[in-house]
Nucleic acid binder design. Structure first.
Length: 554
DNA sequence: CTGGGGATGGGGCCC
DNA sequence: TGGGCCCCATCCCCA
């Protein structure tokens, strides 16, 4: 006895689960997009994936070999057995697919691509290692992709990847398949086309909706919609984690709920003869642009940043129309800052992504508009003036006008005077908070406050805390950070990465310090003693909390 | 019910 | 870039 459609139904279910992010246990990072998937499925698809997912739950793919658009097709293929090539039947696309399939050791898919290319009568591409000029080299991009690597798996991943790449190269020479200039061009052009909003119906829709979640630090332009959280494992996560996961899952939803490509006449299947298996339309597609967030990063970098010669150099003028966060963080700024959140348009469901009329191409970037929806992640609109100068809060209808305006700000204006900062606890300031009270000489003084530092780099880092611009946005929730490290640490909480495990109880932490702190629970060590009552505490912060009890008027 | 303590999460900031 | 330590906030437990 055999159920005729068992395998098909099973796969369909898995694909639907992937679309909702349900039970997804691995995140694949491709260039600046996140994809969620199931380890088992990936491992069953290729040896390469098998080796990667064995120990890691975050996989970084070589962006020279695969780009987000291609990987979306590949992921669809893995979960459906169909090559959804109706709208992407170009030779470049097949070359790109072939490259990626070979890289990922998806032999069946590679064979399909080869077959298709042969059928088109085009010779297989020849080896070419020079990346397309329009496409930054991998090494350039690597440094700009804020991917959080598991502390314990990152190096392993790299090692594995190196090994696999070596194998891959060998295989390539055997199979006479490799990345070509034209192929790279294909990747590049495909990406470029995809990034142009509405420039080419089908492809742009794929590019806009199906590329997953933008993780690019550069984030030239991001349109974000949010998807309701699926009834999945995220419910057990913290709100932020749930948001992140839903964002990721939404990218899948978009990528999988792609009926037009399934129904294309040129779709290819690995087993053939299958009827169209469009995923049920869950209704998410029609609202992809319903709630959108637009981030516009201007061409010109922050004048002050440039003048300081800061190595990061990608600080925007402060025109990030950020999300309305549901938590107290409120767009990443405290309420006294000029980073307003206007909720009216959000509540009205106003489509601010279309409203702007500015594609990312205008800002000189080529990244696609990544679209996802996420519960509790509402877009923020500034009426018709989407481009907001953070220092003064003025809105402008275009990035050009904003840039022109920003140049009128002087360096001094980019600072905020933090009068409040000295009203804080004097004792704290005198002891630990204010480094200028240390013994070592600190010749580098902050021009805004009285703090001084031993080296200029630290001073520069400190001076950023006076700016209103926050150069490092979380591309999952949109929250802005002054330091990259803080942002990456924040991202770790989104991704649920807790590399630091307690050997005693198995509890896991995102930070080493937390683990150290936690270990005192097991050791019973209470190194912090109240000088007033003699009470002992495992954590300093609890001692401080306790001291407040002593000093509070009540 | 309330307040205090234990424990944890997340962000800011300095090194 | 990551570690470390600061802060605040929060939850839970218990007296």
């Amino acid at each position: 006895m055999e159920l005729p459609n068992h395998a098909k139904q099973l796969l369909l279910q898995l694909n639907q689960q992937r679309a909702k992010g349900f039970l997804c246990d691995v995140i694949i990072v491709v260039e600046n997009a996140l994809f969620r998937a199931h380890k088992n499925i990936l491992a069953a698809s290729s040896i390469y994936f098998k080796s990667l997912v064995l120990h890691d739950n975050l996989i970084n793919l070589d962006t020279d070999m695969v780009n987000p658009s291609v990987f979306r097709q590949i992921l669809d293929f893995i979960y459906t057995g169909k090559l959804l090539s109706a709208d992407q039947a170009s030779e470049q696309n097949f070359n790109a697919l072939l490259t990626a399939a070979s890289y990922l050791q998806l032999h069946d898919l590679a064979a399909l691509c080869r077959k298709k290319i042969k059928r088109n009568g085009k010779p297989l591409p020849t080896k070419h290692t020079t990346p397309h000029p329009g496409r930054p080299h991998r090494n350039q991009r690597l440094s700009s992709t804020p991917v959080i690597q598991n502390r314990y798996s990152g190096s392993k991943d790299i090692e594995k990847k190196k090994i696999t790449e070596e194998l891959f190269k060998d295989r390539l020479s055997d199979d006479e398949v490799y990345v070509t200039g034209s192929n790279q061009e294909g990747l590049s052009s495909l990406h470029g086309v995809a990034s142009k909003h509405g420039s080419n119906g089908n492809i742009s829709s794929i590019g806009d909706q199906g590329l997953g979640l933008d993780l690019s630090k550069k984030s030239p332009s991001v349109s974000v919609t949010h998807e309701e959280v699926s009834p999945n494992e995220n419910q057990q996560e913290s709100p932020q984690s749930a948001s992140a996961s839903s964002a990721n899952s939404a990218s899948f939803e978009d990528s999988t709920a792609n009926p037009q490509s399934v129904e294309g006449g040129d779709s290819m299947e690995i087993d053939g003869g299958d009827e169209n298996q469009s995923l049920p339309d869950t209704g998410q597609r029609k609202s992809l642009h319903h709630l959108a967030m637009k981030k516009e990063w201007p061409k010109k970098e922050n004048a002050y940043e440039n003048s300081k010669g800061d190595e990061e150099g990608t600080i925007p003028n402060g025109v990030i129309v950020g999300p309305k966060l549901t938590d107290k963080s409120n767009c990443g700024y405290s309420s006294e800052h000029s980073f307003q959140c206007k909720e009216d348009d959000v509540e009205n469901g106003k489509d601010i992504s279309d409203e702007s009329g500015h594609s990312e191409s205008e800002s000189g970037h080529t990244s696609a508009n990544y679209v996802y929806r996420q519960e509790g992640f509402e877009p923020v609109a500034y009426g018709d003036n989407l481009y907001v100068c953070i220092p003064c809060g003025k809105g402008f209808p275009s990035s050009e006008q904003l840039n022109a305006h920003v140049e009128t700000h002087t360096e001094e204006e980019l600072y905020i005077k933090e009068e409040d900062s000295y009203i804080k606890d004097e004792a704290e300031d005198l002891s630990t908070q204010n480094p200028s009270f240390g013994n070592e000489p600190r010749p580098f003084k902050c021009s805004v406050c009285e703090k001084s530092y031993k080296d200029p780099a630290t001073l520069r880092q400190h001076e950023k805390t006076h700016w209103l611009t926050r150069p490092f946005p979380c591309n999952i929730c949109g929250k802005m950070f002054t330091q990259r490290g803080t942002m990456t640490r924040h991202m770790r909480s989104h991704l649920g990465l807790k590399p630091f495990a307690c050997e005693e109880c198995g509890m896991r932490f995102t930070r080493q310090y937390r683990l150290t702190e936690h270990m005192r629970v097991h050791s019973g060590e209470k190194p912090y003693e109240c000088q007033l009552c003699g009470g002992k505490f495992t954590q300093q912060r609890n001692l401080i909390s306790h001291l407040r009890m002593h000093t509070s008027p009540s």
